[in-house]
Amino acid sequence: MRIACPLCGERDSREFSYKGAALALGYPSEEAGFEAWDDYLHKRDNPAGPTRELWYHGSGCTAWLVVTRNTMTHEILSVELAEDAPESAQENTQGANA
């Protein structure tokens, strides 16, 4: 698995670490109840297919990236800088379960 960092180019996956579903781009409001926080912290769509996730280029430029990747094949579909990525914290893969 190689990841094309928008700043550094295509690099070995060893340079990156995985954070998890890209829903961590946003977070619930302070007033939101337990359920909203549980949804955010623990519950996952966990799709078998394309998924949007956060990776950190720790051994490179140290940017946070939003990587769209297929969990069935490990194919990387797109990579963007987290700071440019839409903060729509929802995983945009509903219905993509294979």
Binding site: R44, N46, P47
Partner: peptide, 14 residues
């Protein structure tokens, strides 16, 4: 995750 989704559930599982 896939089977629970059939029941409209999201699980705390990755």
């Amino acid at each position: 995750g896939q089977v629970a989704a059939m029941a409209g559930m999201r699980l705390p599982v990755e």
